[in-house]
Design a protein around this nucleic acid. Structure first.
Lengths: 240, 240
DNA sequence: CGCCGTATTGAGCACTTTCAAATTGCGTGG
DNA sequence: CCACGCAATTTGAAAGTGCTCAATACGGCG
């Protein structure tokens, strides 16, 4: 299952066979977590990072009065808390949106990597910078896009990200989360998300039902959302 | 003026005198830019990054119909597009909010640094990860906080960040930007920002007038905003 | 003194939330 | 196979929050 991670990295840069071996050796352990499990807590010193092999994770922050904002969702192959290696603890928590399979990467191995493999270091640095680019696009959604556009934009983004690792089939992909989860991504109430979803469905753009997203009209959906995938940096550019 | 940058780095990690020399040698050139100037355009390949020596910058994305979302503001000592080193081009533009003094850091020098100085590489990696942490907090503001809380939170954040480099005096600091600029940070209209500012002023919490922010009651302001500075990672932790 | 960008204010409107209730879907146990 | 229970979804109505449009005031500068 680590192949998806390699697939992801190779979408952006060249990874030599020797480097692939280094990457495979980063993993110390594998675990399975049920949906709803907390993978990493906020504010606690961390000594390893988590590679998502299968399933979907969410990073979120809680506010008073039970409000919650999900700041990012993760798809298989992502390295959701790689930034924990340099930050030493997370400013947010990570939870399983679905049942997940994760790999544990001790920071001491990452440290050794940074000492011996400058190119791989830059590859992973790139990975965290890409993560930040997605945060920025979410800021735009949360700050400026309408509820309908936000939902449409998220579906476009997930479509693009999941397509990269072959998890889109016939314009549809699994997204086994609740409308409440979705509302926490979009900065809306679940009630309103429900109404937006109905609108998008009735416009024959996209449907999200029983854990599956089906995109009926990708061009019109992208246009509605003003989706421009440049921020996902999908072209392959050697990091030198 | 690069001292502010060193001050910033040393707030988070130890920088040896030898490393300081390496950092100083990163700079190839210095420039002054007037308020309103575009420092970096979106989507254009970049071969250098920009260190902010003095003034304030904003990173933003434009949408259709002239809407704009500022995704981050930068204070002296920041390295606003350091991530351009690994991403090779920016997904957003950078503009001067005020008159600025910037330093040019060619990517070839950063590349040499990553080959020879693993610790400094991690220090700068940390710097970009911290940048992402601020993005996340902005996502929370934009997604879940009320207009009043958003404004209050931004003032708390800037207070904390400017205090770090000695730019806060008597609970007030210069913020020579317009209410329209502010509204583009907060995901609001300038009209509404104006009303929120009046409210905050009449509550004796904070005033923002003629380019100066004066915080009258920091504890209550923090409490209103639910401001928790942990995401700024202000403790000093050696990155090994 | 007059101009222009910025700040301020008002009124009406639209989108989103809140609160509450009804419905659906699904796994468990009888 | 059906009844039950719980979670998720759906719907309605009313209330807010923030937006739009438009007009007015302010302040620095030529």
């Amino acid at each position: 299952m680590i192949d998806r991670h390699l697939q992801r990295l190779r979408a952006h840069d060249e990874i030599s066979p020797a480097e692939e071996l280094v990457i495979r050796a980063l993993i110390a352990d594998r675990r399975r977590c049920r949906a709803g499990t907390t993978v990493v807590e906020a504010g606690v010193p961390v000594s390893h990072s988590t590679l998502l092999l299968d399933g979907m994770l969410a990073r979120y922050k809680d506010l008073d009065e039970g409000q919650r904002q999900i700041t990012q969702v993760h798809v298989p192959g992502d390295f959701p808390d790689l930034h924990g290696f340099v930050l030493k603890k997370l400013d947010q928590a990570i939870t399983c949106l679905t049942d997940c399979e994760i790999a544990i990467v001790p920071h001491e191995r990452l440290l050794a990597m940074t000492q011996q493999h400058p190119h791989l270091t830059r590859v992973y640095w790139f990975h965290t910078a890409l993560d930040a680019a997605i945060h920025r696009e979410w800021e735009v959604s949360l700050g400026r896009r309408s509820a309908q556009q936000r939902a449409a934009h998220l579906f476009c983004e997930l479509h693009a990200r999941l397509d990269l690792i072959g998890l889109v089939e016939d314009s549809s992909f699994a997204l086994p989360i609740t409308q409440a989860d979705l509302s926490e991504c979009l900065g809306l109430t679940s009630v309103h998300v429900n109404r937006m979803l109905r609108q998008l469905r009735s416009m024959d753009l996209v449907s999200f039902q029983s854990g599956t997203v089906t995109i009926m009209d990708l061009p019109r959906l992208k246009s509605l959302a003003e989706f421009d995938p440049k921020y996902l940096y999908l072209e392959r550019l050697p990091r030198r």
